[in-house]
Design a protein around this nucleic acid. Structure first.
Lengths: 349, 349
DNA sequence: TAGAGCCTGGACAACGTTGTCAGCGTCGGG
DNA sequence: CCCGACGCTGACAACGTTGTCCAGGCTCTA
């Protein structure tokens, strides 16, 4: 029976079943505390015979080192936090996985949370992670003011923003070329003869949404096409609103002949609308979607590499921790236009 | 300047920028240590005036409580671990998110990791989480022997297995009705006149794969259809193998007229194969897939509710922690057959 | 006005681990 | 045979927080 059995009696809130500690192991093996520590951490300077005895005791007691105590002593937690919008969104799965792989390669665990696109919840999460003393943070910002992070960054928490830039602070950022990607996507539609092109995107306060809209406007302007207000719809991306927006653009006296959609969720909804629509309408979407190639017609998209975003950000994070990195930087990853048919439809009229 | 500035000098490995501690706050506010603790934790017994002074000091120093130390003292970490196969798999996104929401409702954070379907990596992850002293674990097992968890469970780590049962230990399990779902899916094909029905699934050592195969066999047997070995293909679900398996079933003297696919990854690959195939072939897949309704024909599936799996498991976990729960239980959630066309195709011959 | 009781605040130990440092024994060279 | 060097081990303090317990000052009542 471990020596520390008394513990729970004293802390009624604690339901923990009295885990053995190094002290217990030391007592059982008949060695000093520090020797156990040495064995557990693979430090040199322990006789094979002593090591065996200690290992035996560890085995017998089912000892497992308490990392909380370790962290307290060492200052580093070997864990990083990831705050994103929604784990369930297929765009964030691969991103998240990529971050995890890099973390794993550096011996770190990943704690993650969804902000649900809510600035307060983002802050709450980030600060909770800081309280846990994560070594670093990968943040997909929901809010647009991150000054609350300043003390944390000053205190040494490595921080990288992904997908969208940070607000009001100078920090590393990894983003896709949202502007260029959207511009090229819209150009593609123009090249196929479209002039009345609609844009359905996310709320304009979201940086990516704004950038993609800018890409759309630029492509139109470059082609000398004046943009009607009725062709642009920005707002929450729930199916209801997107559906209504698409239907409005597609009806009326001067309906659009093509639609550029601002992200995967919007694209999916618009595909559904177009499937019910009589006339064929061209479509290019930002973000690739699964099975896009098997739809009729195949869906042309501006693809961003979610895994590369995550990987790049995480690698940068660990370089910050290494001390290899000095000045914050903005890294922009290219997007790729994947043509599959839907963007190549000619204008109907 | 905080009093504890000296710290890093003494621990050169520590790159942390000397965060202020309660001691620093106390000194600055001119109060005792415990008073700061009381303010930070909202405990009663502090004058408004004192509280104000403390809050001011906290603000000025950018203090944030160190949860590692707190955990060490309190025994509970308010965090739970989730070990799944692959965060990037669209099936696990919603599951993961559901677990997160429940955790959040209980004030806990979520640490998660991917086992990559590797038993050793699963164990490594789980034990790392235990070392962090997570309060509980939600595990989607990759391995089939979980006796290594016994000391942890005994030590009080709440544990729930999801999607697949635990191996050799008695623990809570939340699974879908894999057997019944697959049986009904295959029955659906039989009802539409098919007799030569293929089954392509995951490695048979994976419990869900085995159960779904059993469902297939039972449906066939109930209908009095002898099953040819060539109709069943089990193994890794990478596109290469699945593609080959499908092509083999579809060629030869007695090709199958319908295929039942064992999970979402297999389904997607088979859809691609069938798209290139001359004759129409009926298809029912286990797991729903996005846009399945928009394909030609729509893909009929046996859907499981990933979010419900996660939610149920997480809720059970917290009930274990409450002490509301005693005996481990096995909970089975129903599946739902969603008919969309591909399962209703008549046999070609 | 004294005593009881309450409210506020602070000293102290403990949580489990690791870094420092000193002690002890052995071994080889002078 | 002695002395220094080296290898192994353990005592001890510290990491930052919280629970316990006590002291001092206040109010209220008898």
């Amino acid at each position: 029976m471990p020596e520390t059995t008394r513990r729970t009696d004293r802390f009624p809130g604690t339901r923990y079943g009295n885990r053995p500690t190094m002290k217990d192991v030391a007592a059982r093996a008949g060695v000093g505390l520090k020797t156990v520590s040495r064995v557990v951490n693979g430090e040199p300077g322990v006789t094979p015979e002593t090591e065996r005895r200690v290992q035996e005791a560890i085995e017998a007691l089912g000892f497992r080192r308490n990392d909380s105590a370790r962290v307290l002593r060492k200052g580093r937690t070997a864990s990083i936090g990831l705050v994103l919008e929604d784990l369930a969104d297929p765009f964030y799965g691969p991103l998240s996985r990529a971050v995890e792989e890099v973390a794993r390669a550096h011996g770190a665990l990943l704690i993650n949370g969804s902000s649900a696109e809510d600035a307060d919840r983002e802050q709450e999460l980030v600060l909770a992670l800081c309280a846990r003393r994560v070594d670093g943070l990968v943040v997909i910002p929901a809010g647009d003011d991150h000054r609350y992070l300043e003390p944390e960054i000053k205190a040494g928490v490595a921080t990288v923003f992904v997908d969208r830039p940070a607000g009001h602070i100078d920090a590393d950022v990894v983003v896709s070329d949202n502007f260029g990607g959207a511009r090229d996507g819209v150009r593609h539609l123009i090249a196929h003869g479209h002039r009345r092109i609609g844009f359905i995107g996310d709320m304009p306060r979201i940086h990516t949404a704004a950038e993609r809209l800018r890409g759309y406007r630029t492509a139109m302007e470059d082609a000398g096409i004046p943009v009607a207000d009725a062709w642009m719809s920005l707002g929450v991306t729930d199916p209801e609103r997107v559906r209504r927006a698409a239907q409005e653009m597609l009806s009326g006296p001067e309906p659009v002949t093509a639609i550029f959609t601002g992200n995967n969720r919007v694209t999916v909804t618009v595909i559904r609308v177009l499937a019910e629509h009589a006339r064929p309408v061209a479509l290019v979407g930002f973000d690739d979607i699964e099975l896009a190639d098997l739809l009729q017609p195949g869906v042309t998209v501006v693809a961003q590499d979610a895994a590369a975003l995550g990987r790049t950000a995480a690698e940068r994070l660990f370089r910050q921790l290494d001390g290899t990195l000095i000045a914050p930087e903005r890294i922009e990853l290219p997007t790729r236009l994947i043509t599959r048919g839907s963007g190549e439809l000619p204008p109907a009229d």
